[in-house]
């Protein structure tokens, strides 16, 4: 197992390299010029060229690329073109709200979706199942920003139960912190929850038709033991896979959610940096998001071996 984990860790390096190349060139081929933005609207072509030379953006792409890669290998993600702050510091400053939002969404979605999916499969084709699956289709079809504004309208504006916008760091107290996360987590999590609930139901339905479930019932085991141990453990591999795939969904959702709820996290930082063509910041952020995704996949792959003894590496 240890050898497998080490092998998988090394396998992430080429993935990250490809991401780095892709990010660098993608953003440079995108329209827009940071030098023109910095120089201002009325700047002369000469002034813009000056700014460009100062930022090193007049050098050939390949040269810029190798400078960036060399810096990165030394742990230096570069300096923001606009704020002149190191990209790593910008990211660290903004990481807490995003991690808090992602983890709370992940936790809430998984904690609700799996029981919902299990119950739906257990009561398949009955009323509970139809309600749950109706909700799942609706939840999956609802764009994050639409749901976010609906939630804000009712829970914050009409009933004034929760704050409309903003983020309170955990350092300012646990309850305000939780309060500020509830609406964004729900808005972000509904799609994800619908996805997990559906796959849980489908996977459980398949498992519940297996012979070994009949054996478990022939032992007179309690329903919860049959469902939660005998069936769910067998159904777990596809569910965990979808939870992993859904992390990508969450990362893209975070950008929108943070904008709607005015949360100063990595998502907002990304939007601002992209709009300003702040190349070093965008590059650093995409690498961080990619690394997070790669890490999640690694965890998922390792979890398979624990869930199903037939999977060995």
């Amino acid at each position: 197992m240890t050898a497998y984990i080490v092998r998988r860790l090394f396998a992430t390096l080429p993935v990250m390299a490809v991401v780095a190349v892709f990010v660098f060139f993608l953003i440079r081929f995108a329209p827009g010029d940071p030098a023109a933005i910095i120089a201002g609207e009325d700047a002369t072509a000469e002034a813009i060229a000056q700014v460009r030379a100062k930022l090193g953006l007049d050098r050939p792409f390949m040269e810029q690329f190798f400078i960036w890669i060399l810096q990165m290998l030394q742990g230096d993600l570069g300096v923001s073109i606009f704020s002149n702050l190191p990209v790593s510091r910008l990211i660290v400053q903004r990481v807490e709200p995003t991690v808090a939002l992602t983890l709370s969404t992940l936790f809430v979605a998984v904690a609700l979706a799996i029981p919902i999916g299990v119950v739906a499969a257990w009561k398949a084709r009955r009323l509970v199942d139809r309600l749950v699956m109706g909700f799942a289709v609706l939840g999956f079809a609802m764009p994050v920003f639409v749901l976010a504004y609906i939630l804000i309208y009712f829970f914050a504006v009409q009933w004034q139960l929760l704050p409309v916008q903003g983020y309170r760091p955990i350092a300012e107290g646990f309850w305000p912190f939780v309060e500020s996360l509830i609406l964004p987590s729900v808005a972000l999590g509904v799609t994800y929850m619908a996805l997990i609930a559906r796959i849980t139901r489908a996977s459980m339905l398949e498992v519940l038709a297996q012979d070994y479930i009949r054996t478990a019932n022939a032992k007179g085991l309690a329903t919860d033991r049959v469902l939660l141990l005998h069936a769910l453990k067998n159904a777990a591999v596809p569910i965990v896979t979808v939870i992993g795939i859904g992390i990508a969904l969450l990362i893209s959702g975070v950008v929108i959610t943070e904008t709607v709820f005015n949360i100063p996290g990595l998502g907002r930082l990304t939007v601002d940096a992209v709009l300003k063509r702040d190349y070093p910041v965008v590059q650093g952020l995409i690498l961080v998001f990619a690394a997070a995704k790669v890490l999640v996949n690694l965890i998922i792959d390792i979890s398979y071996a624990f869930l199903d003894p037939r999977i060995r590496y």
Partner: peptide, 15 residues
């Protein structure tokens, strides 16, 4: 108690 026909599928693979 009961014994089933298919020993290959009648036992739970993950327990």
């Amino acid at each position: 108690s009961m014994i089933f026909q298919e020993p290959m599928t009648s036992l739970n693979p993950v327990l």
